[in-house]
Design a protein around this nucleic acid. Structure first.
Lengths: 339, 339
DNA sequence: TTGTACGCGTTATCAT
DNA sequence: ATGATAACGCGTACAA
């Protein structure tokens, strides 16, 4: 592969002038003769000259790149966020470098190191389910501004963009109560993730407020996956006192639940209602359609990036926490005639 | 934000030796005293020294980065491919820089320019639906190796990783014939994309082989979207001679079709069968489950990257075309008792 | 074995 | 208005 890129030196040589003049002309410096400037721009155009971003970055100590770390990409929620990030970054002339942690702690650490070494100017992060230690972020925070989204570093003194998980879970649980369900189970996420805690708390508080007894047997911790949902529901339906509704930490878990219930010919919602969280695309495809809380994924990406752009202008990092509203979408999986 | 990164000069100064010795030691050059080497490595470790990849890239004219251009990311097919790419690239110590064309030609051109300027060492590309002119790729091809996947540059003399769209469509159409469907429609993709042409041809040839008449009215060109599917099927069901089966260019289109059919209370597959292509996650969620051709998305990403890694070792670019097998997944949306 | 000098492509600060 | 020179951080041929 040929690699004969045109440089300012080439232009200077052909015009018999010094390359610093060329540099000035090319970047619109006022102190340059109108005629020579014209000549330079012409030749540059003819030779298809393009600035070398690598040299520029080294010189200016600026890469004009924002680093992103997410747990996985083959997931509509995260890929929509990425889409939002890319759109805003692109408009502002920033590049985006995406790394996947694969829900793996070591890999997340290595991602952070890589992006810091690479002199990305800021980090947009959603942590892995394994992450309990935040030292790698502590280090990174000293070098560049960070914005966490969805799965965040709660006490890190960093910017965060989250949805109101507590309120969302509270609202959803109250919806189930209002529909007349008496034994409402909760499939919770992985224990160390803040999202899990907030949604659990919303669930608990809504039950308390409505004078529902809290039954530990109806709360199962686990993950965000469909498999977790399937496994968990199998245990719940074997209980002596079965639940009559299941509020799942997210839609994928709810999917796992629904598929098992269908397999076992347990009618949804007549025998058992199911609710999710996220508003994944399939939630309007599955039958019955899944009741869920919409999370504005694309917007999360946009806002996170907007906050990052602000940080990149700031003298001192001023963290900001933005909480986005969720929206209750009542569908058939919880909609039955009150008894 | 502090930016006092440790350089080889700092280490050299502290040890009163020249920085070239430090450079040598750090990179395992043999000609360096064992003791000084030890000292250097120790101090480097203590100071948390890390090579500056920017300087390294400028110096070596190698960025160790592979560029990727895809039409969209909020799509399981593409995000699974990305996942496959990242995995292989990561293992080989390569970085990945992802750009989205957003199905937009100008943006694709700008993506190519950016990645070339940025000195990514190779390009992995799936073209936008708008792309009919390949000049930007012609230019890029002179500078770095390229591998196209799924939506490729057919006559570009470049490496390609595709699934056997022709055979897949042929097999699917024959399946419909075998099931006894008589008027099989085809919702085709956008006209200029090769995927569209291949699937259409497979459909046509299968009909011919089985002595089915080809009815132009039953072939509708359009896009890859759910909306296209919905619009197209609305016209087809209004036909005097309705189809009794619809083979869609992909699952999303099939989804659009199915939702409209359900709305109109047209029974699937009894009154009209529906088949897709891709094996999107929702195809086992929708009812009836969608008959489709599985495309190995993750594998497409892996293989594309493996081929790219080979190119990066080669003296001269030797393009290779890899065709992956699809797999027919017969589900309820086409499964009816033969009449 | 180690140090010197130069180059990668650019910007910025001096002079002139 | 222009040119020479240093610097960004690193690697390497050549000299010592």
């Amino acid at each position: 592969m040929a690699n004969e890129e045109v440089t300012i030196k080439d232009i200077a040589k052909q015009l018999n002038i010094s390359f610093s003049t060329v540099s000035r002309a090319l970047r619109g410096h006022p102190d340059v003769n109108t005629e020579t400037k014209k000549k330079i721009l012409e030749l540059a155009g003819k030779l298809n000259y393009e600035k070398n971003p690598l040299a520029l970055s080294l010189r200016k100590q600026k890469t004009h790149t924002i680093g992103v770390i997410i747990p996985e990409i083959a997931n509509t929620f995260f890929s929509s966020i990425i889409s939002g990030i890319q759109h805003v970054a692109y408009e502002a002339g920033y590049n985006v470098m995406i790394c996947l942690s694969d829900e793996n702690f070591e890999r997340e650490v290595s991602n952070v190191q890589h992006l810091v070494r690479y002199r990305t100017e800021g980090l947009l992060v959603s942590i892995s389910t394994e992450t309990a230690d935040f030292q790698h972020f502590e280090l990174a925070k000293r070098k560049l501004p960070m914005v966490f989204f969805d799965r965040t570093w709660e006490n890190g003194g960093v910017s965060q963009v989250v949805v109101d998980d507590y309120e969302g879970a509270f609202t959803m649980t109250e919806h189930l109560v209002e529909m007349g369900y008496k034994r409402i189970a909760h499939l919770a996420g992985p224990k160390n993730v803040q999202v899990t805690k907030n949604r659990l708390q919303g669930y608990l508080d809504a039950l308390k407020k409505n004078n529902h007894a809290i039954d530990e047997n109806l709360i199962v911790f686990g993950g965000f996956s469909q498999e977790f949902g399937s496994e968990a529901i199998k245990k719940l339906v074997d209980l002596a006192e079965k639940p009559d509704a299941v509020f799942c930490v997210n839609d994928r878990t709810a999917l796992g639940v629904m598929l098992v219930l269908k397999e076992k010919h347990i009618a949804i919602p007549e025998e058992m209602a199911v609710a999710g969280f996220t508003n994944a695309p399939f939630s309007t495809i599955i039958e019955p359609n899944l009741t869920t809380m919409a999370q504005p994924a694309f917007e999360i990406g946009q806002i996170s990036t907007e906050i990052m752009l602000r940080h990149l202008q700031e003298e001192v990092y001023q963290p900001e926490i933005r909480t986005l509203k969720t929206q209750l979408l009542i569908r058939d999986s919880t909609l039955r005639n009150k008894s």
